[in-house]
Design a protein around this nucleic acid. Sequence first.
DNA 1: AACTATTGATAAATCGATTTTTCAGTGCTG
DNA 2: CAGCACTGAAAAATCGATTTATCAATAGTT
Lengths: 352, 352
Amino acid sequence: MSSGAVHKRPSIHDVANHAGVSAATVSKVMHGVPTVKPENAQRVFEAVERLGYRADPLASDLRRAKRRIIGAILPEFESEFFGSMVTHLERLAELRGYTLVAASSGESEEREAEILRRMQDWRVAGVVLAPVRDEHGRGGESMRAHGMTGVMIDRVLSDKSFDTVSADSLSASAEVARELIGRGHRHVLVVGLGEQGACVRARLEGFRKMAEALDPKVRIDVILCESDVEPLRASIRDYFSRGERPTAVFSLFLKGTLVALSEFRRRGWHCPDDISLVGFDDAEWMSVTWPTIAAVVQPVGQIAAQAMDMLFRRIDGESGPPTARLERCQLLVRESVGAPSSGPHSGGGTGQ
Amino acid sequence: MSSGAVHKRPSIHDVANHAGVSAATVSKVMHGVPTVKPENAQRVFEAVERLGYRADPLASDLRRAKRRIIGAILPEFESEFFGSMVTHLERLAELRGYTLVAASSGESEEREAEILRRMQDWRVAGVVLAPVRDEHGRGGESMRAHGMTGVMIDRVLSDKSFDTVSADSLSASAEVARELIGRGHRHVLVVGLGEQGACVRARLEGFRKMAEALDPKVRIDVILCESDVEPLRASIRDYFSRGERPTAVFSLFLKGTLVALSEFRRRGWHCPDDISLVGFDDAEWMSVTWPTIAAVVQPVGQIAAQAMDMLFRRIDGESGPPTARLERCQLLVRESVGAPSSGPHSGGGTGQ
DNA sequence: AACTATTGATAAATCGATTTTTCAGTGCTG
DNA sequence: CAGCACTGAAAAATCGATTTATCAATAGTT
């Protein structure tokens, strides 16, 4: 049965020889083309079985126009959000007989462009791009310029060239505003990264519009930094050092939530007694720590499914104007959100 | 300059025609083979430049015996550990001109085997496998049977067929024991998943040996479950419900740390006043929550680097007995570890 | 000057499939 | 029975590179 290490795998010609037919016939049998005599098909199946033949996807793809490879470019792999996104995309690609090749841009547009170039070299059938910046960044530009088929997700709203799928940031932020204003907060700090991004602006404006609609006198301070997290940390630290005392913080990204928490910790402030906190992106740990952290859950599975659905429709030749899907989020209110504290913060105030 | 969408990319023959040489000459120029007249090389470079030619890695690999693809199979992508691992592996593969194709086994040996089969179809040059179980599971078996070249990482100790790279679980666990015993703990609960794995046993025995060496009268309770996290949760809950009151918990995996935290929370116990906690695997949130959570940091970058180093040595034909590397971990003692509490736990006792 | 080495380049084979073209054999029609 | 459409399969072209074999032109040797 299983003899020693088999180092050279059988090719389609080996199968053909074994079955006494031509390679073309083997190919037909493997693809279920009906114009093959049942007797020959049977012999091919037997040869395949005996030799343990499996088609080489590389060779197989070479002849096709569109290769059965999907590229996925994400800013990073370390977070639950993108990790889960890769898992979903992988499964969806596989379901259709495609292979997913994922790459991380490391939050660099340089690298994003380089990876796109490489994906193009591979002549992938399509690309799922979660751009470092937004739909108007270099990634989309490059895809457009080279006529690639692709879908953009996450940090996008809508695009004139590509289909987009993202969380419904506007509604989600509005719900956060409703929650905070409803609990009596009238001074909120909003923090986030990627100030130029359309998605960030949507999250910010969704929050601002709803908050001001509920109470025009609400005070909303905003700290946005372009990309790196350390400048954001510095700005927040500086903000608190100036004596600013919002009663709640709304973070537009996971990184911001972590920075906010660590700055609270520096000052000895506790949630929600001293300050409330809610942020975009849920994570497993948020429901087991003290306090549990309120978060906007993005529907990763749905975003992935919609993105792949659109992508394969385009791959299959569907034309028409690009679509822009928004998937509904869920706000999980947890212990980190409470009513504004009346007294002064428990921790020291001006400490640096 | 940048004319409209270019849908058909130039092949090596287009370059050859443009430069007035043969395709073979273009190939030589692209690979820096010196037996080309400088004048011709120049013309090839110009044609490459003008046409924007880039070699098709698919076609290029077809002719080679070993393809410039590395497969990575990891249990999941959602955690910081494996997410970071993928990032490192990706970079290291790229550095050598290889493409990394990562896939997640979803903690299933079935899927692990299926993915390995697919990697074989792709005729990858090598595989980095973080097995679902351990070095004696189906994954290694399958790699051996098909004569694949590969390295195993993470949940392994050593193997007679493949190189292995993993965290030095024994030493790390011993250090945890030293820390807990040193602080006065004499009743510790150890929790984890994958009871059959060699790596789990190493973590457990490393802890037990050191703890018993420091104080033979120490009491060590152990709760291990095979794979799923929910049975583990149930067992832990049952354990506490029976009235067991260890003064510290040591988790052998991140999942266990999360489960422990959530069970503490159920009972209203706080770290470290009511119970101490330390676990394998660090995460970003652990240093910003209350309390900060003590953790064993695994040297992801080093594991990745060593694994890829070994892998490429094997790909390049290096023979010799398989090596088993252990990379030193770092214990970060944080607020979740304190001295054992003298009085009864603050929270209710028997609540279910 | 004739013959061999060397150099640089081209033509052809190859990798492993798919797709198109060709072809032999059948069955049907008029 | 000649002519034609149809069926099933083999042969050949193709995808885009690498690698080997071959060949022409030049350089070197006696």
